[in-house]
Every structure is written in structure tokens, then in C-alpha cells.
Design a protein around this nucleic acid. Structure first.
Lengths: 226, 226
DNA sequence: GGCGGCATGTGGGCGCCGTCAACATCAGGA
DNA sequence: TCCTGATGTTGACGGCGCCCACATGCCGCC
């Protein structure tokens, strides 16, 4: 649909991209288990095995979809972060950014459960992947989270001692929330309950970190401008 | 191996249980995707399709394995809880019990990654499942968690207002930690880092809840007798 | 004691799947 | 111009879940 200028017969012209796009469609509505090379080939109007000219095996295609999913997740987080950026008070802004990052993460998982599941069938190990080929720092959920936490230390809200392994704690909480609600036991919860529980959870993280420096937090201020 | 007194030929005699045991073995070493009815039938020495006399379809078998896995998870949590029970001070005991429950949860996930994954392909929705057929309260990770949290309120460590949705927060954190380390991006972390991060994470939850009542916590006391 | 019914196990088949091997088609450079 | 490499096709193999018809043997009932 996008740009098929070349193809008419034998050689498709843009098969690789066409397969990826079809795969994304399928992944969105059926998740990772619904991805089948033969099915995708059929959808694109090409014979089975054609895909093997562009992907070593099924996993390679799934990895590609996961990559696109990661970009979408990053975008969702950045959208929420942009809003939090407008808070004027530096401390409240830093706190809001952490909450926003988590909120965006869960938003994406609930809005795109299929892609979210695919994403975590082949997620890059975090210590790498944070730096692009040219050495520039890429935007990636893990580096965004770390930036938020470093910020919280800078503004004096999070004690340096409590910074250790805080990425793991935050990521665990938010990821667990997403998994439990997307494919886990909480998948039947109502959207209202879900949102309320998420606010409670993000607030709990905030309050816990406030305690690390004895910072005073007012109830409700974190989600005042949600 | 266990009790095959009957069988020699045509009728196996104990096929259902044999299939489940074989399925558990496979699940432990290959996870849910490694479970195939035909393969299991082959292992048990019976023809394909025989399994259909005991299970409606593949999912039914997986559900059965998930049930056994849930029992094992519950046992792992109870083992840790029993240790925490020995703490004399009531407040510290209640806090230790919550941490122990989480610790047991993660222990199980890391010790039995295959079963853990199977478990969450068909986990019962929590509001149900907490009460057995005879009306007695069953032991179940979710009810254990709720009991721990109620305890924390009783001893005055957790504010009643902060009790709302606290199950979700705690479960999310611990489940996310487990998932990230079992099959997620943190799967390559060293056992030492893992354990250190887990202690930090469980401590963070404790400190956050202490803040809800202004309770004073001493560093290190939670994991003194781990 | 014989017999019939029902639970249990067998064998074959269908349409999926991923993957390998051999062959067909086409575009672009020597 | 032709040939070479990239790309797409056809065919096959084994494995899967599941449906069918058929075989076997245990049980209770007359």
C-alpha cells in the first residue's frame, strides 16, 4: 500500500519490507505465536520460502518486528515524558518524569499487547544497545529510565545510596504491572481499576524514594496534571 | 516409574498421570513451547492420540502442568515464610514475611524457569481461586500476599490508606523482577548481581510502606537472618 | 457364566508449520 | 552480449494438533 512502484510479477521489489509490515499487522492482533512465515508469504502474495531470501529463519523476522516494537515503545514513553517536562519545579519535574516514563511503558503495553509480547521475546541485554554504532546515545527505554533516576539524584530527591540498582526496581515494578495486566492474572481487570492501581504503584515508588532522603511529598501532586 | 503395577500392553493403566509427569519433565527443561502431545505420547510409549482420551486438547494438558507448577510455587513461598515466622518482634516479623514471600516467589522463578513460564500461560484470575470447593481458604500466592499485607496493617507498619491496591504493587514488582531475570533482558545477570538487586528491590518496597506511617526502619535489619 | 457396553488405546489422514534442495527468472555489469 | 548473482518458485521431509473409524479389554448385568 505504501510504496509499491516496482513490482508486478516474478520479483516483488520490496519483499523484505512488505513482509515486515505484514508481520507487524499480524503481531498486533495475534501476538508472537501468530507469526508464521508461510502465512505472511501468503498475505504478501508470494510463495512460501521467498521469505528465506531476506530472513535466515523465523526468529530473524520476529527479531525485526521486535525492533520496530521497541521503537514504538520508546516513542510512547517519550510522549509521556514530554508532558512531564513542562512542570516548573525541578524536583517535582524529575519525579514526574520518572512516573511519566513508567506510565508510558504501561500505556504501550496495554495499547499494543501483541507488539509488547513480541518485544520481550528478543529484547537486547541492556548494558549494550544503549550506544549506537556512531557512538551517540540512542533513545531506549532502559537509558531513558536511567536518565530519569540520575535526575532524581541530581535534584536531591533520591539518595545516592538508594540509586544503586534502582533501575532494576523501577523496571521490575512497571514491567510486572504491564505483564500481569496484559497476559497475566489481572488481564480481566477493568480499565478504571487498572489505571487506579497504576497510579498507586507509581506513587508508591515515588514515596519510597522520597524516604531515601526524607523529602516531603504532598498527596496527589504527582498526578495533578496527568 | 512411580507405580505401574497394572500395565503391560494395550491399556496403559495410568496414562493420564504418566503424561502429566512426562509433561512436567519436558516443561522444566524446555518451557511451555516444548510441550507437544505427540512427543509426550512417544515418551510414555503410547501412540499419538491416546492423550485425547484424557485431555480435551493440548491446552488442557498445559493447564494441568500449570496447576502443579502453582503448587510448587506456593510451596517455595511457604518455605521462605516459615523462616520469617521465627522473628520475634511482631512488626519486624510482618515486614520479614512480606519480603520472604517475594523472595520465595523469585527463588522459584529462577530455580524452575520452565515451570514458571508454563504457570503464567494459564494463571487463574485472582479474585476467584482463593476459595476451595469446600469453602476453606486455599493456599495460593495471591492470598498469601494479601495476608502478609493485612498483617502489616495490623501491626501498624502499613497505613490503611496505603493498603489499597498494595497487592498489585507488590505482585508487579516481584513478578517483573522474576520475568526480567528469567526470560527478559536481565537473564544474563550474574547470580550475585541478581541477589543484590533483589534485596534492594524488596527493601525499597519495605521502605516505601514504612513511609506510609512514618515508621522508622534500620538499615539491614530486614535481611539480617536471610 | 456368558455377553454387551463403555472406557481406553491404535492407525490413518488432513492441513498447518519451518526448513532444505533444486530450479526459474530477471537485472545489471564485464 | 552474455553471464552471474540476487531473488522467487516448486517440491519434499518431518513434526505438529486434531478428527475419524476401528481395535481391545474390563466391568457389570442378566
Amino acid at each position: 500500500m505504501s510504496t509499491p512502484p516496482a513490482a508486478a510479477s516474478y520479483h516483488h521489489g520490496n519483499l523484505r519490507e512488505a513482509l515486515i509490515e505484514a508481520a507487524i499487522d499480524v503481531a498486533r492482533e495475534r501476538g508472537p505465536d501468530g507469526l508464521a512465515l508461510r502465512d505472511l508469504a501468503r498475505r504478501v502474495g508470494v510463495s512460501h520460502n521467498a521469505a528465506y531470501r531476506h530472513f535466515a529463519d523465523r526468529d530473524a523476522l520476529v527479531d525485526e518486528v521486535a525492533g520496530r516494537g521497541l521503537a514504538a515503545l520508546t516513542a510512547a514513553m517519550q510522549a509521556r515524558l514530554a508532558v512531564a517536562e513542562r512542570v516548573v519545579d525541578p524536583v517535582l519535574r524529575a519525579r514526574s518524569r520518572l512516573a511519566a516514563a513508567g506510565h508510558g511503558y504501561v500505556d504501550f503495553a496495554l495499547a499494543e499487547p501483541g507488539l509488547f509480547k513480541v518485544l520481550f521475546t528478543s529484547y537486547p541485554t541492556p548494558p549494550d544497545g544503549a550506544v549506537g554504532a556512531d557512538g551517540a546515545t540512542e533513545q531506549d527505554p532502559f537509558v531513558m529510565l536511567n536518565a530519569c533516576l540520575d535526575d532524581l539524584v541530581s535534584v536531591g530527591f533520591l539518595a545516592a545510596a538508594a540509586r544503586v540498582h534502582a533501575e532494576i526496581t523501577c523496571w521490575s515494578t512497571v514491567h510486572g504491572f504491564a505483564v500481569l495486566h496484559v497476559e497475566g492474572p489481572m488481564r480481566t481487570a477493568s480499565p478504571a481499576d487498572r489505571e487506579a492501581a497504576l497510579v498507586v504503584t507509581l506513587t508508591a515508588i515515588d514515596r519510597g524514594y522520597a524516604a531515601s532522603t526524607g523529602a516531603v511529598v504532598a498527596p496527589g501532586e504527582l498526578f495533578a496534571e496527568a
